[in-house]
């Protein structure tokens, strides 16, 4: 696989494949199966797929109930609509430590024209506030596939944040929770990029290094917002003076906040953490390119910002 592919599609293909090996996996959707790509599982295992209609809250509850009976439910919708049912997730899944896997697609301003109502922009903030919840964000197809299998084998709730837009392949090491794969060496500054932001951050870092700006940031794929691994984080904070976290998500409570909280509390030397994302504003309609540009989430804008 070398072309570009959206992580929602990677998810759909992976779940359809793993359904063979893991017979307890079941899948729910709420009238968005063609968008979340759960339709690929639905076609292969119609008996293990549940079309709930437009009932996200009911879907969450049903999945919790099924998990108590030993099934491994994947529940799929746009991240905005799924995590919008916060109390149901908090109580029926989080508090109960239900073995439910939440799939939130269409995250970030990069969904484009549909605008704010359909954009997952606060989903990480919400999900990482729930104890027991593991919060993951793959940056490419291979990583998404590995995360899906990891989630099947992990006992407890997992939130997987996926993109509408297609992403390139990065050929990274196998997913190990808490270890951010490194894509570029560098010094003093580390770019920690999440999901759809990885390509732009990597290109910007390479641009900065080439253009003799005096900056040569290392680049990591920050593929997990929770739980951060202390050893890995300690090494990062030891090694780099500035950590910049890029995310197509509000900076309020996102992966950048998670890392800033960890560093301010635990780093041996005080370090600066820059949260680089959607700055406490709503989403809106526009082309994906125009919106990413407006929020500074392109390689050019990032390069300019740090030049």
């Amino acid at each position: 696989m070398s072309g570009k592919i959206a992580t929602r599609k990677s998810f759909g293909m992976a779940l359809a494949d793993f359904g063979e090996k893991y017979k307890d996996v079941v899948c729910f959707d709420a009238d968005l199966s063609k968008s979340t790509m759960s339709i690929l599982f639905a076609k292969k295992y119609p008996g293990r797929f549940f079309e709930m209609g437009i009932q996200e809250a009911n879907m969450i509850g049903c999945a919790a109930g099924m998990s108590f009976m030993g099934k491994i439910p994947f529940i799929c919708s746009f991240g905005a609509f799924l995590t919008g049912r916060f109390d149901q997730i908090r109580m029926s899944i989080g508090y109960a430590n239900a073995n439910v896997k939440l799939i939130g697609t269409h995250c970030g301003v990069a969904i484009g024209e549909d605008g704010h109502s359909q954009m997952g922009l606060e989903d990480i903030a919400l999900m990482r506030s729930i104890p027991n919840m593991v919060v993951l964000q793959p940056a490419d197809d291979k990583e998404c596939r590995e995360m899906v299998e990891w989630a099947i084998n992990h006992q407890g709730p997992v939130y997987l944040r996926l993109t509408r837009q297609e992403l390139p392949q990065f050929n990274m090491d196998k997913f190990i929770p808490g270890i951010f794969p490194q894509l570029k060496m560098g010094e003093k500054m580390a770019f920690l990029a999440t999901g759809g932001m990885l390509e732009a951050a990597l290109n910007a870092a390479e641009g900065l290094a080439k253009k003799g700006t005096g900056k040569n940031p290392a680049v990591f794929n920050a593929n997990l917002a929770k739980p951060l691994a202390d050893n890995f984080m300690m090494n990062l904070a030891d090694k780099y003076e500035t950590l910049v976290v890029f995310e197509d998500h509000t900076v309020m409570g996102g992966t950048g906040s998670a890392i800033a909280e960890w560093v301010s509390q635990n780093a041996k030397i005080p370090r600066r953490v820059i949260r680089y994302g959607v700055n406490d504003s709503f989403g809106e309609s526009g082309t994906p390119e125009a919106l990413l540009d407006k929020h500074g989430l392109t390689a050019t804008k990032i390069e300019n910002y740090f030049s």
Partner: peptide, 10 residues
Amino acid sequence: RQLGSRLQGH
């Protein structure tokens, strides 16, 4: 649905 329009997608 264009950037800046009052006529948002929703």
